[in-house]
């Protein structure tokens, strides 16, 4: 099937894009990489009268380190994020999750901002943004604002972005000290959406005790979920293998996984716990090196 007819606009600047958006309102949809939107249009799950292509805007690209943060332009494609040396040095979790995103063709066009604004709970970038307490830089024709990750993801494919706003960049805090990161997810076939998964980061002290911990789950609820109780449970401890299994069980209790055609909620809970355990183990091993 083909999308319903639409007008295609390519604004020349961010301001022009914002003006167009403010003017067209509900009838317009932003297009960046199109890797989530175009399939929905093609399947006619949705239709818009105007597509406003912000993919080419230079103002929305670029990766730079800024004072404790790594700022990534929203229209930066996944492939670039995944291969960038600054990203690998500052926010290695992004480098680790990128190869898990779909297939390389998707990563060549899909953008990090698009993924985060689309807010699929099984997507890797939104989950990393939540785990690392990223900040979303947002612009509208009336100004700019910053939304912290824990206020950004509201529900299925729904964020706190208003209809006339554009996500312009994402700022990821950079961790310091002896830290390590891990990601583990389960999909039936390579490139499928994950049925369940976990991303995590740990920082350990001199004796291997956990000083800082972040765990977020994907595919386990209507949005990515931060497993805060599990994080607290690890603080100050030097966890054994059994401890990690226990933390895995605790982590999935923070989510209310759906039952659907792909997996039951019970399956997601069980496997999710194991994903957390493995991701934590990866992170701890990396931190200890």
């Amino acid at each position: 099937m083909k999308p319903s007819a639409f007008e295609y606009e390519v604004p020349e600047s961010l301001d022009a894009a914002l003006a167009t958006l403010a003017q067209l309102g509900d009838e317009a949809k932003l297009l960046a990489g199109g890797q989530s939107l175009i399939p929905m249009l093609a399947l006619r799950l949705t239709a818009f009268e105007h597509l406003v292509d912000i993919g080419p805007l230079a103002e929305l690209k670029g990766i730079r380190r800024e004072d404790g943060f790594l700022r990534i332009g929203a229209a930066t494609v996944d492939r670039v994020v995944g291969r960038d040396p600054e990203v690998a040095a500052s926010v290695p979790l992004l480098t680790k999750v990128t190869p898990l995103i779909g297939h390389f063709q998707i990563r060549n066009r899909g953008t990090i901002g698009g993924s985060i604004a689309h807010a699929d709970s099984a997507a890797e970038y939104p989950t990393v943004a939540l785990a690392l307490d990223a900040e979303m830089e947002v612009a509208s024709s009336s100004g700019t604002r910053t939304i912290p990750a824990d206020e950004f993801f509201e529900s299925t494919w729904t964020t706190s972005l208003e209809g006339d706003e554009i996500l312009t960049a994402i700022r990821f805090p950079v961790w310091s000290g002896r830290c390590g990161f891990g990601v583990e997810e389960l999909a039936r076939r390579h490139g499928d959406f994950a049925l369940t998964g976990a991303v995590c980061g740990v920082e350990i002290g001199d004796s291997g005790e956990v000083r800082r911990c972040a765990i977020a789950l994907l595919g386990m609820d209507s949005t990515p979920v931060r497993a805060s109780p599990a994080e607290s449970a690890l603080l100050g401890r030097t966890p054994s293998a059994e401890d990690l299994t226990e933390v895995g069980h605790l982590a999935v209790q923070a989510a209310d996984p759906p039952s659907d055609l792909h997996a039951s909620s019970e399956y997601r809970r069980q496997v999710g716990g194991e994903m957390v355990r493995r991701a934590l183990r990866q992170a701890l091993e990396e931190a200890a090196r």
Binding site: A32, Q35, S36, S115, D120, A123
Partner: peptide, 9 residues
């Protein structure tokens, strides 16, 4: 189709 066709951005 939706999942497969890479409904990922």
């Amino acid at each position: 189709l939706l999942r497969r066709s890479g409904a990922k951005s």
